[in-house]
Nucleic acid binder design. Sequence first.
DNA 1: GCCGTATTCCTACCG
DNA 2: ACCGGTAGGAATACGGCG
Length: 788
Amino acid sequence: MEILFYLLDINHEVVDGRPEIRLWGFDNLGNRVLIIDRSFLPSFYLILGEDVDGDGIAKSLLERWGDNPAIAGVELTDRRYFGKPVKAVKVTCNVPEMARYAEAMAKTVGIKGHVEDDLRYASQYLVARDVYPCGWHVLEVGEGGIDPKPRVDRVYLAKSVPKAFEKTDVPDLRILSFSIICYSSRGAPRPESNPVVIISAATNTGMSKQFAADDTDDGPVVDSFVRLIEEFDPDIIVGYGNNTRDWPYLIERCRKLGVKLAVDRSGMEPHTSAYGHISVTGRANLDVNDLAEDLLEVKVKTLENVADFLGVRKRGERTIIEDVNISGYWEDPEKRVKLLAFSEQNAHDILGVCNATLDFTTQMANLVGLPLDQVEAAAVGFRVEWYLIRQAFKLGELVPAREERPYFPYKGAIVLQPKVGIHEKVAVLDFRSLYPSIMIANNASPDTYIPPDQPEPRSGVYVAPEVNHKFRREPPGFYKLVLSDLIKARQQIRDRMRGLGPKSADWRILDARQRVVKTCTNAVYGYAGWIGARWYVKPVAEATAAWGRYVIQQTLDEAKKFGLEVVYGDTDSIFVRHDPEKTGAFLKAVEERLGLDIRPDEVYERVLFTEAKKRYAGLLPDGRLDIVGLEVARGDWCEAAKRVQESVLRIVLREDSPKKAVVFVRGYLNGLKSGRVAYRDFVIWKTLTKPIESYEVNAPHVAAAKILRKEGWEMVVGDKVGYVIVKGKGKIYDRAKPYTLSNLSELDLDYYIANQVLPAAMRILEIFGVKESDLTVAEASKTLSMFL
DNA sequence: GCCGTATTCCTACCG
DNA sequence: ACCGGTAGGAATACGGCG
């Protein structure tokens, strides 16, 4: 019988010595189904040297390995490798672990190397069968079954190859969010000895559950949670930090308690899988903390900040209990109520964040072709790479192995020196997708690169300026094909969106898809220059950057011809004094000359530049401010400093009155000195970018992290440390304390004035000749150095 | 040992 | 665990100094 199937999760099993693929998802009637596919085996390729006897090598491989039970088949094939036609022996295996056979067989004379043995069996299936997570397929199935019986409505055996089926709607997913609270009287809880005292869960069907320990007896808590999952049977389980914290803790704790953490659909426990995520077979286990990495606007990625940014719940509408205070809240029966409420809020916020981001994540999974839970956890480079692997397969390109290589940087983009001060009516003109366009126009790609020692092809080459890297004109390279497809696809999606209401479900899904396509398009250049990339060819990235510099230089020359005043520019943009007529003609001339799409982005009413590049603020026609690069835009300045700077910018740009700004700052400082600024506005956040021991200097955030560690908290790479500077003598690092361990009365307010608020305010005001003393010295005694 | 300055380390931003 | 270009704070090294 034929069914429509939506893929949610994939895994493999070896049954009676035979590997098989398991596809978990839905049919179009809303049934949860498992489809077992026994028709596909893992494989790898042995690449042959040039001018060798392919048939002979295949034959000798068969003789040597044919009887090995792990080897199912050996076949001579034609493939491409970096664009060049090659002979390759495809070795099909009866075991999913292929690397050792690939290595052993590659030792055969005449074989240059082995590839694709490092692609997981399930991934190979998705690529080779062109099956897409979070997408619909049509296929022929028959009755099937596995032991033990999985937690699904139907089990089928695949009888045909699944074929992609055009259908945008998403099945009715059951989503369960959860959040756990663990208790230790001091420091970080450890699963060997400390209980999981609260588990809160919420579902998208409106159910809300909470399990709390009777004092420290957490067996029933975990048990109830497992039963809740069993009963609700979610398709998506979502948490915040569940990949790194919650699941590892629960797994370890359950081992200790002797409780089976049976939360998946096949009777196994959650386990570590690709890209540091934890896999729950048959479901998608999502960690919206991973997703938060994609939200560049959110600087300190706490659940409350992310929820706030996505409009899930407003800041202030929730109480926040810091990790260091949890034990106190749990121990005190009166405060325990608040802890329970806090945990419940967390579960609800996680659910809200999941709902707000699920379209994006499902579309990412579908475009890139990685399962939902993996794609959320994967870094940008790996997302791009999987998209490329899919396309490579369709082109008959072999997937290069990952290699370790040394790092040598190359020259990047041009940034112009800004003209200091305020400018009226400034237009920002930028090239649309400059790097992708350059790569397409010049066929820059790993498979079209012609090294200096090789002859030029008859069809000719494109030569990059400055670096002189050469790329064959014909045929179109891998990146050109991929990027052209992506750009075309995005255009098609946007065309389809035009016919839909902006609020409809289809519109939202398509909008998420076009955003995903754009993200991937823009990441290809970065991927090309990443030494970890399978298709890394440095000249591709280096040449693209060189062409980019050339384009901007040509644009500047043209602007000069038109008599346009350029006040700033960065990489793919120039900022000019707006003269509608001149600008229009100029844009046309540039397009003609360079064949690239350049267009006006914003026209700022007024824009302010300091002497520094990459830092400016512009006033938009609707009154909003664009603040770029300045302290306001940074996560490592305290709120107090950022707020003052933002106000100064607003006054200066909107009211054109530095004097008023000075008065404002003075007033703010007075308030600050008399304790009218909230404690949390003094917290400075910085990330630990390496293990505490490997720091060469004693930085304040490291000192604060050391204090936390001493208190029993584990501090790991990637942790954001919130610290304050307290009164006292000595270096700043001697006076940095974790903000959770201090309070307003301890703070060194003079430090905050001199090193946070004043620098942030002066960054703007110094442009107008304001002196620091204008902001600090008492009114009566001050000599007005400004307003000249 | 102190002081002012140059250099290095470190983080987070822009496009 | 995507690129290079850039700013800027704090720590540290350095040079002068009876």
